[in-house]
């Protein structure tokens, strides 16, 4: 084929043949290269988090991708297709006007104050008068994970994006990445073991909190989440201990040390 190769002679057929395959090979290589460079670009421009959430969301099991309006009965069984980001959702305002079909009572012992807004990743947001917002783990989330051994909080100044990683917690080999409920800049850390974890300056705009749950809607969701937790725990041999209908203990992790906590926490905190 090349100089030094015995007995090869070029012919038009060879040129056509080899060109065709050269072309295909280059398309393949160019495709790979394009994907590679785009990846570099995405990582550098900080879009990695959003893209990663996009992929994660697609891979969430069906029961974890239910629309918020499915819990309160407005749209039973409806699946979210926007990554739990209702800020630009066209159908959200329509469903939001529908009356809740059934009354909701919060599971015994759980506290979900009306003053807070809740994110699907089991965090709460409390807007502060100074325009900042506090972020912490919600009651169910705190009971599931209990007292983390390690908490890795983002440095002040870090930009958070909705559903991106907010902070990491580790306990006894189980490790979760808590999804950020807000888009904004980290201003301060909360006290270790304190109520809140982060103080964030959210992005401006009236839709900044639209994707968060509140009030009865949040209670409906917590109900469903408690059920989900029961199912997750009951699919393991230790699950029977929970199914007594009583109040959830403060630290499930401690109460049921043999449960597959890595998996359960990942499921509860929307990790993939």
């Amino acid at each position: 084929m090349f100089p030094g190769v015995n007995g090869f002679h070029w012919s038009p057929v060879h040129i056509i043949f080899l060109s065709a395959f050269g072309l295909v090979l280059s398309v393949l290589l160019v495709t790979l290269a394009v994907a590679f460079f785009r990846t570099l670009r995405d990582v550098r421009s900080g879009r990695a988090g959003a893209i990663a959430w996009h992929c994660d969301f697609e891979d969430l099991p069906r029961q974890e991708r239910l629309c918020r309006h499915a819990f309160e009965g407005a749209a039973p069984g409806r699946l979210c297709d926007r990554g739990f980001d209702c800020r630009d959702c066209e159908t959200h305002p329509k469903f939001a006007t529908i009356e809740t079909r059934w009354p909701v009572t919060l599971p015994a012992g759980l506290e979900y104050p009306e003053t807070r807004l809740y994110h699907r990743g089991h965090t709460w947001v409390e807007p502060q008068p100074d325009g900042t917002a506090l972020i912490g783990l919600d009651d169910l989330g705190a009971r599931v994970f209990g007292a983390p051994e390690v908490v890795e909080l983002p440095a002040p100044g870090t930009k958070l994006s909705v559903n991106g990683a907010a902070w990491r917690m580790m306990r006894n080999g189980a490790s979760v990445s808590v999804r950020s409920p807000l888009e904004g800049e980290v201003i301060a850390h909360g006290a270790p073991g304190g109520q809140w974890q982060l103080r964030v300056k959210p992005e401006a705009g009236e839709r900044a909190f639209r994707h968060l749950l509140s009030g009865a809607e949040a209670h409906a969701w917590v109900n469903a989440e408690t059920d989900r937790l029961m199912i997750l725990l009951s699919s393991t041999p230790t699950g029977a201990a929970l199914a007594d209908g009583g109040a959830l203990v403060a630290d499930l992790h401690q109460a049921l040390p043999d449960a597959p906590w890595d998996e359960v926490s990942a499921a509860m905190f929307l990790n993939c």
């Binding site: 084929m1 100089p3 030094g4 190769v5």
Partner: peptide, 9 residues
């Protein structure tokens, strides 16, 4: 250059 081709051949 012809070297690698010759070697391969």
């Amino acid at each position: 250059s012809p070297v690698p081709w010759k070697l391969l051949d």
